[in-house]
Design a protein around this nucleic acid. Structure first.
Lengths: 214, 214
DNA sequence: GGCGATTATGGCACAAAGTGCCGAATAATG
DNA sequence: CATTATTCGGCACTTTGTGCCATAATCGCC
């Protein structure tokens, strides 16, 4: 039986398709580029394209997905004694530092294409879930029953989100690492005011029963 | 000129379309339901459907969008002296209390339909942006230059997200208000540990320059 | 109420995504 | 070389979403 060592060839074709599509996308808008053209430029048929990518968006995220996987893996692999929230920060800092120009151009493309933004949102959600599970594992908690991993993940992402948002917005020129520094600084300096306000205003309204589980 | 008091009729048709679609969706899966059927059941043509809704998803979110708008408006309209983070909590608590069964069934539908989940993500993003702007206005800050509104919004959403996630997940039976209480409680009790860990681990690594703005 | 203008509607055609199916080319195995 | 599995290409089909135009409903006005 020809049991398909074609796994190697399959990768090659997939890479070629990505390559061609990304090259075409430097000139054209994502929506105006049809799969017909991508397939033709790569020398395969439209039908074959769909055997390698489930959708037009996939051909762009073939790169970006890898980045997210890398980040998640790095977070999980960090030393167990490191603070979980800090671990997320450090992994992020490390991977953004290694960002090459091509990935940066891709991020730009995603930012100005609605259908790609959707995929990015899904990616972020997956990443978040991965982080939640990683944090739960570190703390020895069940993320299905205990809310702490969820809360911790949100806290960890807060400075990241703020930095990314500023970068995507009107501060694209600045370095992402510096923006993250600023976001962390803001977070640390403002935390007392935040928590104080939250505490004083919600507690008198309704006394939450103490959750029984430890 | 027939300047179209048809605004009234337009609303009626839109409502009818929504009504019909939602009724059909109690039996059928979202993906298997075609616009052709919705239009036929409502007594209009497929082409006319697209004059009232831009996509099949819109017909579901005609209801859900209103809820998000209400929440955003309620947050903005809260007394100015109330703590911003607490304001978000209280608005959310108030609106979820008024959640009727239909909206609940809709949320279920969204949860089990990928294409609708996508729209929900967009909704959340819009809501978040609205909250950021509302917080910026309260604090007299420019959300384009200052990261504090971003950070505050994330903090405010953290317990909400945790509560919603638990509710959507394996604790759908419990009351959403109680879950929010638990999330808030967790947040308040854990905040010191979180911030301590974050501080000690990031600062020695790279000293962020103090941002100049006050 | 009738008439001209505006607006909504329906039908048609069309592009493009995505999928199922089948025959042909291709490559591995004996 | 022959067989057999796998991939590829082409074709047809469904569905979404949009542009265009003729027709029917509606409105303002006389």
């Amino acid at each position: 039986m020809a049991v398909a060592i074609g796994e190697r060839k399959r990768r090659a074709v997939r890479g070629e398709l990505s390559e061609v599509a990304l090259r075409l996308l430097t000139d054209r808008a994502f929506d105006s580029l049809t799969i017909e053209e991508i397939a033709a430029a790569a020398g395969v048929s439209r039908r074959t394209f769909f055997r390698y990518f489930a959708s037009k968006e996939d051909v762009v995220f073939a790169f970006l997905d890898r980045w997210a996987v890398l980040l998640a893996a790095d977070i999980v692999a960090r030393p167990a004694d490191e603070d979980p929230v800090a671990a997320v920060q450090n992994s992020f800092r490390q991977l953004t530092a290694a960002y090459n120009d091509r990935a940066l151009a891709l991020v730009r493309l995603v930012r100005e294409t609605p259908s790609l933004q959707e995929r990015e949102r899904i990616n972020r959600e997956h990443l978040r879930i991965a982080v939640v599970n990683a944090l739960a594992t570190r703390l020895g908690l069940d993320s299905e029953r205990d809310m702490r991993p969820q809360i911790l993940a949100t806290i960890a992402f807060a400075p990241l989100d703020a930095a990314m948002f500023a970068w995507f917005g009107n501060r694209a020129g600045e370095e992402i690492g510096r923006l993250l520094d600023e976001a962390l600084d803001t977070f640390v300096r403002e935390r007392d005011a935040m928590c104080a306000g939250l505490e004083s205003s919600t507690k008198p309204q309704r006394r939450p029963r103490q959750p029984g589980r430890q």
